[in-house]
Every structure is written in C-alpha cells, then in structure tokens.
Amino acid sequence: MSKKVFLVRHCQAKGQEESAILTEEGFLQAEALSRFFEPYKIDHIISSPFTRALQTIEPTARVKGIKVEEDVRLTERILSATPMNDWYEELEKTFQDLDLSYEGGESSLEAMRRAQSVIQEIADHEAECIVLVTHGNLLALLLKSYDSMIGFQQWADLRNPDVFLLELKNFKTKRLYPL
C-alpha cells in the first residue's frame, strides 16, 4: 500500500500575518473540509503553526481524535523582509528563477527544500495516511518539486482551501478538493 499525504492549503483567512484567523466563511470551509476527510483513515496531522492553518484542520483533528503536530517548516515562504509594492510580479520571477531571493527572503529552491524535508521524514514515519496543512506559496513550490510544470499560474489558481494528494510510492500529485 502506498503512503498517502494530503497537502492542504488553509481556509479563507482575514490576513497574512502569523496570527490571522479564519473568516466566518473560512470556519465553514474548515467544517466542510472535515466532512471531506471523513472516509479517510487519517493517522497523523502536521500543520504550520500559523493560526489560520491550525484553525483549518482543527475540526478534522477533533473528529478523528488526532493531536495536531505543529512544524515551523510548513510556515509560509517569506518573499522579502521588506514590503514590496510589486510583490506579485516579483513572486512570478521566483517561479522562473528558483535561486532568486530578495533581501531577508527565501528563494523558491530554499522553500522547496524546507517543505521536502517534512515529506522525507514522513516517508520514514509509521503513519500511512497523513495530512499536512500549509500556505499557498509553499504548497505550490512543494507541488513544483514533484511536477516541474507547476508554476506561477498554478499558484495563482490555488483556492482556500485546496487539497492535493501526494502518493509517496510514485511521487505523483492530484488535486482532490475543491472539485
């Protein structure tokens, strides 16, 4: 049997800061996500410690009776330590040049390696069905590490929430939610 890893982008939130909470719609999405996961025998949940990520998976963890493990490696990628008025265009450049980084920021390659280190640990974990909860940019880069065709446009097309299945047997990914 192939180990299954569900890669989850958090539900709709009120902001981007670490303490940003889910919106009213985001809390409803989190409950819907819990219903989506009902048929799966999830035995481990790992989440970014950001509030919006934890709130996204809390209903699922409660229903499954699983304690959420927080992992800072799943936090959102920092594009730059200083605000950028043209961040959207600068972010697009980082999908074309994976080594490009801005002052105080993380290159796409660095972020990919950080996220991949979590996947590598999961491969050795006894759990067979794992949920990882993260953020849009890091999720897109993690998907790109398994499929070079993933790029800026696929990041832009991500939803809140979004769920992809990663099969560790063949490292193939597939979008499952929203349908």
Rank of each mutant, 00 (worst) to 15 (best):
S2P: 12
K3E: 05
K4Q: 11
K4L: 08
K4Y: 05
L7C: 06
K14T: 15
A20N: 08
T23R: 06
G26Y: 00
G26R: 03
Q29W: 02
Q29Y: 04
Q29D: 09
E31A: 11
L33V: 04
F36W: 11
E38C: 10
I42N: 02
I42Y: 00
D43Q: 09
D43S: 10
D43G: 12
H44D: 05
I45C: 12
I45D: 06
F50D: 04
T51D: 11
A53T: 12
I57E: 01
E58S: 15
P59M: 04
V63Q: 09
K64H: 08
E69G: 06
E69A: 14
E70H: 04
D71A: 12
L74M: 14
L74Q: 14
T75G: 03
T75M: 15
R77A: 09
I78H: 01
L79G: 02
L79K: 07
A81F: 02
T82R: 15
T82K: 15
P83Y: 08
M84G: 02
N85P: 10
W87Q: 08
W87Y: 14
E89V: 11
E90F: 04
T94V: 03
S101E: 03
S101W: 00
E103L: 12
G104W: 07
G104Y: 05
G104M: 08
S107P: 01
S108I: 03
L109F: 07
A111E: 02
M112Y: 04
R113I: 06
R114K: 14
V118A: 11
D124Q: 13
H125M: 11
A127C: 08
E128F: 02
C129S: 13
I130R: 04
V131P: 00
V131N: 01
G136C: 12
N137G: 02
L138S: 12
A140M: 01
L142A: 02
L143D: 00
S145T: 03
S145L: 04
S148D: 14
M149Q: 14
I150P: 00
I150G: 00
F152N: 05
F152Y: 14
Q154P: 01
Q154I: 06
D157Y: 07
L158F: 07
P161D: 11
L166I: 03
K169R: 07
F171S: 14
K172M: 11
K172Q: 15
T173A: 10
R175P: 13
L176G: 10
